[in-house]
Design a protein around this nucleic acid. Structure first.
Length: 600
RNA sequence: GGUCCCAUAGCUCAGCUGGAUAGAGCAUCUUCCUUCUAAGAAGGCGGUCAUUGGUUCGAAUCCAAUUGGGAUCACCA
């Protein structure tokens, strides 16, 4: 059924029979296009141990396989390469095998659970392009791990407290009054809640910078001025009041966060991302102190004279790291120690993934090292899915300088461009669509373009966001793949109207075209690619695979006819193959969080 | 200064645990719609895989050094 597995076994048997030795790992690779064959076995390693010429060994292996393995139709030898052509019957058996497994590529429950934490927004500003890469990665890797048999919990840790929120709150108090004397609201401003709060964050920064500049002009040093500026002092005072539970401050904080969450909910809904569990830092920021106590007691941490608590990780190539301030208050990692414990005690996950930008690589190394030293049993299952920054053609995105690309604006933009592209290309295909259906389709295509654009790149790498390329619908893009799916669905619709079926096993005696062979090989790779993507936390490898599949199908579509093929047995095979390709595209794109349309 | 990440075609990126003449897309130049969706397909052009050494039958891939870019080493998060 599985072409590769059959072939590997046959090769192992051949080697054993002919040379009475065994090879534990037979790796096959797809044969290069310049040579004839399906798979290539590289047997250079045998040449050395057998002390025979490559030509001799290749011929012997090939001959044995051809007469003993039904999978093998023919072979040729070039140096240390044995190129094996698979028989058409074996291809078709493989296709029928895939057809018989509705859950092809999905590993059944493996008994393990994993938590994936991602998104983790701050409540002082709306989501931007950088968050989108994070969200799409987190969402996709969650789906990929689920397909690999894990029970997945998607978690979001909201950074809803701290000095940055106080800045927005303060600016709102100062500048939020409207002409009629009442304070601005999302309704009165006509803004989403998160955008309204973001507006005040920007206002704070402007006013604060002006204050600093004035102080510097009056002769104060820059770093002193940054601390002494009245707005900063007031923001800090506000944070203190918040921590003391001051009723008025807390009420304002709650009001503003409520608006922000409503805005976030819209955005998440719009980009198709959701969470199973949300943690709020306002509930967790005090955690971790007991972990520090524990570490002190067990000697993992040590205390300095000023009462501050440290861990020495210099023997692991890291540094000495503060885990609690001298005044007993928390630092970032203190919270994370506590929150990590909390997450594991809540869900007892076997593994935990943090989707966080690579500027925090060091932080997570330290966090995991500490967890290991504290003897947490889950320490080995912790993984930081680190991803690179998204750059703009104009350079780095900086929120303070207003060069960020807003997530909501971007999604609207890609939807509009998709609509324009569809109008230009539809040629009547969408005439029976209602306005709402069209809108849904444009959103699916626009978002598909954006998601695919951000996911096709290796997460680890820093990437360049080119606005024009991100909405492109041609070439190596999401819409290209969606289009391939829509074409197949169109053919299948017509087949159905003619009473043809496309879920029946194909006749094994059909002679195959090379594009058909290529597609069957690709389809067979799907489970392996899903597993690889899970093992390596790499949605990009699924993205690449689905593209390859769509591209290969387009070739078949251009070279062969399906419904007007004179031989009904061939039509049947092509329908079955097409249906499986469509299904695999749908599943693969699903792992990226991208929908595929039946018409476009 | 220490540590980590990155470097492949004009541009954006693939290249799995080492395998044959390094692949896509964009851009550019040719072709192909009275035939299942041309948002497509076929072809041309385009490369010293940053550099130098090493490992071996074989290196874009592994190791070391160098150069260039980025991040981080905060009692910020």
């Amino acid at each position: 059924m599985d072409l590769q597995a059959d072939l590997k076994a046959a090769i192992q048997q051949a080697i054993h029979t002919l040379y009475n030795t065994s090879v534990d790992d037979v790796t096959l690779q797809p044969t290069k296009k310049e040579f004839e064959g399906t798979y290539t076995y590289v047997f250079f390693p045998l040449v050395k141990s057998l002390r025979k010429s490559p030509a001799e060994i290749g011929q012997a292996l090939g001959n044995w396989l051809q007469s003993n393995a039904p999978v093998v139709r023919s072979f040729n030898v070039a140096q240390g390469f044995l190129n094996i052509s698979v028989s058409d019957a074996a291809y078709i058996q493989a296709l029928n095998g895939i057809l018989a497994q509705p859950d092809f590529g999905v590993t059944p429950n493996n008994g393990q659970s994993v938590m994936v934490e991602f998104s983790s927004p701050n409540t002082n500003k709306p989501l931007h392009l950088g968050h989108l890469r994070n969200n799409f990665l987190g969402d996709s890797i969650s789906r990929i791990l689920a397909a690999n048999g894990f029970a997945v919990t998607k978690a979001c840790l909201v950074n809803d407290r701290g000095i940055h929120i106080c800045k927005s709150m303060l600016a709102y108090q100062k500048f939020g009054r409207q002409e009629d004397g009442t304070f601005e609201t999302p309704e009165s401003a006509g803004l989403k809640g998160d955008h309204l709060i973001g507006k005040y964050y920007v206002l704070f920064d402007k006013a604060y910078k002006a204050e600093v500049k004035q102080l510097v002009d009056e002769g104060m040093a820059q770093d002193v001025a940054e601390k002494k500026a009245p707005l900063m002092q007031q923001a800090q005072a506000m944070l203190l009041k918040w921590e003391q539970g001051d009723a008025e401050t807390v009420a304002l904080w709650q009001q503003m966060n409520t608006w922000v969450y409503a805005g976030f909910a819209d955005t998440y809904n719009n980009i198709g991302v959701s969470f199973d569990k949300t943690y709020y830092e306002s509930n967790t920021y005090l955690l971790g102190k007991d972990v520090v106590e524990e570490g002190l007691a067990s000697g993992v941490f040590y205390q300095k004279e000023d009462k501050s608590v440290w861990i020495d990780l210099t023997d692991e190539g890291l540094d000495q790291k503060l885990v609690l301030r001298g005044d007993g208050t928390s630092v970032y990692i203190t919270q994370d120690l506590g929150t990590t414990d909390l997450k594991f005690s809540d869900f007892h996950s076997d593994r935990s993934i943090w989707v966080v930008g690579n500027e925090q690589d060091y932080h997570f190394k330290v966090l995991f090292a500490i967890m290991k030293r504290l003897g947490r049993p889950y320490a080995a299952g912790c993984y930081h899915l680190s991803y690179g920054m998204v750059d703009l053609p104009s350079g780095k995105m900086k929120s303070r300088e207003g060069t960020v690309v807003d997530a909501d604006d971007l999604v609207n933009e890609v939807t509009n461009v998709a609509a324009a592209a569809a109008d230009a290309a539809a040629k009547g295909k969408l005439d029976e669509f209602t306005g709402a259906e069209k809108q849904e389709l444009f959103h699916m295509i626009g978002l598909g373009a954006l998601k695919y654009y951000l996911l096709k790149v290796d997460p680890q790498k820093r990437m360049l966001f080119n606005p024009e390329e991100s909405v492109d619908v041609h070439g190596h893009t999401g819409p290209f793949i969606q289009y391939a799916h829509a074409r197949i669905r169109s053919v299948l619709r017509k087949a159905q109207e003619s009473g043809l079926v496309f879920d029946a096993p194909a006749d094994e005696s059909v002679e195959l075209h090379e594009t058909e062979q290529e597609l069957i090989v690709l389809l067979g790779q799907y489970p392996k690619r899903v597993k690889e993507a899970g093992d390596n936390f790499a949605p990009s490898s699924i993205a690449q695979y689905v593209y390859d599949l769509a591209k290969a199908y387009n070739r078949l579509f251009a070279e062969l006819s399906i419904l007007s093929e004179p031989d009904p047995v061939k039509t049947q095979l092509r329908l079955t193959l097409s249906a499986q390709v469509a299904e695999t595209i749908r599943k693969g794109m699903g792992l990226l969080g991208i929908g595929v349309p039946d018409k476009m």
